[in-house]
């Protein structure tokens, strides 16, 4: 697979409104050098964190006790990747925010995850559809990162790639079983794919300046997706609707609720350590 790999160091570019001074001639009190790379890493971190939170919601509710364990394992992997990425994002930002500051003290408008991961779990078919597409995206993404010039990202990519490969395998296993199982499971699995499909567009939106341009992942993504869907006797939906905005902090209504639950206790005790 090929992927654009950024070789240069982080380069500060003013982005997000509110981080630069609006008053001419005045120096901003605390300028935050928000770099392109910070935003990119934050996006990956938030994908993993929000995915972990959603998967953790399944705990004690799985369709089989064995599956409870499997979903918890995958949630733990995503959470582990999120922590590494958030820590690194905090360092890139240089404002002294650690993983918990970033996870617990940002509002939904500051989250950079794709919309796919914040969608509600739905039934087991929707959860497997979300996981399958996420893993089909994360595997080539982390693989590309593993070979990129940024040592930290390369190390995280090398570790997370193996985990995502397993997530992809596990989700594919269920997509095939549900797609080619009973009439009911086929109907539910197809409905899940139809529901989630429009959100895939956002994952692969080109971003040539990113350490890994998502557009370069499309070939790998498409080949896995079409192979598994066809094995699962599922059809690829036709749609022209392409919701997006997560990478810029414009989310669905769901994220704010998810964060309310994630952050409630931490925010109730400012400054406490746990």
């Amino acid at each position: 697979m090929t992927a654009h790999v950024e070789q240069t160091g982080p380069e500060p570019v003013p982005t997000a409104p509110g981080t630069t001074s609006a008053v001419p001639g005045m120096t901003p009190a605390a300028p935050k050098p928000v770099t392109k790379r910070f935003e990119f890493v934050l996006g990956l971190a938030d994908d993993a964190l929000v995915a972990a939170q959603r998967l953790a919601e399944w705990c004690t509710r799985g369709p089989e006790m064995e599956e409870d364990i499997a979903l918890a394992n995958i949630a733990l992997d995503q959470l582990g990747a999120a922590r590494l990425l958030l820590t690194y994002a905090g360092e890139l930002e240089g404002a002294g925010r650690d993983e918990d500051a970033l996870a617990y003290r940002r509002d939904d408008r500051e989250f950079r995850n794709c919309l796919l991961v914040e969608l509600p779990n739905g039934d087991f078919a929707v959860t497997m559809a979300k996981l399958f597409f996420l893993a089909a995206y994360q595997v080539p993404l982390y693989t590309a990162l593993a070979g990129c010039g940024d040592e930290r990202l390369a190390a995280i990519g090398a570790k997370a790639r193996k985990e995502s490969a397993y997530h992809l395998e596990h989700a594919s296993l269920w997509v095939r079983r549900l797609g080619d199982g009973t009439d009911e499971s086929h109907r539910r699995m197809q409905a899940a794919v139809d529901e989630v499909w429009p959100y895939l567009h956002e994952l692969l939106t080109p971003d040539p300046a990113a350490p890994v341009d998502p557009a370069t992942l499309r070939a790998d993504f498409d080949s896995v997706v079409s192979r598994v869907l066809s094995e699962a006797t599922l059809t690829v939906p036709e749609t022209s609707w392409t919701p997006a905005g997560g990478r810029n902090g414009l989310h669905t209504e769901h994220l704010s609720y998810l964060l309310a639950e994630l952050q409630v206790l931490h925010r109730a005790h400012p400054g406490a350590s746990w």
Binding site: R61, P63, E64, E67, F124, L178, G181, S185
Partner: peptide, 8 residues
């Protein structure tokens, strides 16, 4: 709620 998954 898991019955349909186990059946599949």
């Amino acid at each position: 709620e898991g019955a349909w998954v186990r059946a599949a």
